[in-house]
């Protein structure tokens, strides 16, 4: 068990090393002279030369690579060219809306998908089952920006129940900020519930035809107990897997929703950084998001261990 965790950490370090290398190469492969791009068309060749010298771009590529790795290892992601602040600070400043948006929409997705998936599987082929599966297809097919605009129109502009967009301005307290996340969370939650619903339904269908479910019924217990105690726990492994992946995707992929609702999150930070060619920010965000992916995958594997005694690492 402990050896497994140590092994996993070594594996995670290897993955991160590969990620760093790829990020390093991609940034260097980008066409044009970074120094010239950063300084803009009015800079003199002397200015560009000075900046290249300052950024270490004149040194041999291997020396740059080692320097880059050393810098990351010491926890330094560089400084934003646009904000003129360390990338980590910039990211931390934008993390709150993204983290809470991901968390809320994940919870909403599970709350919608899991019960419907279970009932669908249990009443397989019924009207409810057919309706829920096709609604899930529809929810997954509609682009989130359209759902977002629809919600803004009917639940914010016309009724005033929720704020239309934004994050409440600089003076907003925590609750006010969270209030601004309700609509975007519901939008993202609905979109992501489709996948979780299909997975829970399929996993549950699989389990409900297993022999031990018949044994459970033969023991004389209620259908509630058969489904919620004996079947659901066995269906959890695929469900936990897809929930983990959805969470990872949400953290990195809420760009469109953040844009529609004008949230100052990591998604909009990255879009801005790409438009401004703020390479350190792009690079830093890639590394942090990759790290979160690896971490979430590790946590999901730990959950398997808690659910299924047959899983031995």
């Amino acid at each position: 068990m402990l050896t497994y965790i140590v092994k996993r950490f070594v594996g995670m370090a290897v993955v991160m090393f590969i990620v760093l290398t790829v990020v390093f190469v991609i940034v260097r492969l980008a066409p044009g002279d970074p120094a010239a791009l950063m300084l803009g068309p009015e800079a003199t060749p002397e200015d560009a030369m000075a900046l290249r010298e300052r950024l270490g771009l004149n040194r041999p590529i291997f020396v740059q690579y080692v320097g880059f790795l050393g810098q990351i290892a010491s926890g330094d992601l560089g400084s934003s060219l646009f904000f003129n602040r360390p990338v980590l600070d910039v990211l931390a400043g934008r993390a709150e809306p993204t983290v809470f948006l991901s968390l809320f929409s994940l919870i909403i997705a599970i709350v919608i998908a899991l019960p419907i998936g279970l009932v669908s599987a249990y009443t397989r082929g019924s009207l409810f089952d057919q309706a829920s599966v096709s609604t899930a297809m529809l929810a997954a097919s509609v682009p989130s920006f359209w759902t977002g605009l629809l919600f803004q129109q009917y639940l914010a502009t016309k009724t005033g129940w929720f704020p239309v967009a934004g994050y409440g301005g600089p003076d907003a307290d925590f609750f006010d900020r969270m209030r601004h996340l309700i609509l975007p969370s519901v939008v993202l939650g609905i979109v992501n519930s489709a996948l979780i619903l299909r997975f829970s339904r399929a996993a549950m269908l699989d389990v409900l035809s297993d022999d031990f479910v018949r044994t459970a019924r033969a023991k004389g217990m209620s259908e509630w107990r058969v489904v919620l105690r004996h079947a659901l726990k066995n269906a959890l492994i695929p469900i936990v897997t897809v929930v983990g992946l959805t969470f990872a995707l949400l953290i990195s992929g809420a760009v469109v929703t953040e844009r529609v609702f004008n949230l100052p999150g990591i998604g909009s930070l990255v879009v801005g950084a790409v438009l401004r060619r703020d390479y350190p920010v792009i690079q830093g965000t890639l590394i942090v998001v990759a790290g979160l992916y690896v971490l979430i995958n590790f946590l999901v594997d730990m959950l398997y261990l808690a659910i299924d005694p047959r899983v031995k690492y």
């Binding site: 022999d211 031990f212 044994t215 726990k233 299924d308």
Partner: peptide
């Protein structure tokens, strides 16, 4: 009335 089944490998719940 109790019942036992053919497949002891799959008739018990693996998670309990």
């Amino acid at each position: 009335i109790s019942m036992i089944f053919q497949e002891p490998m799959t008739s018990l719940n693996p998670l309990f």
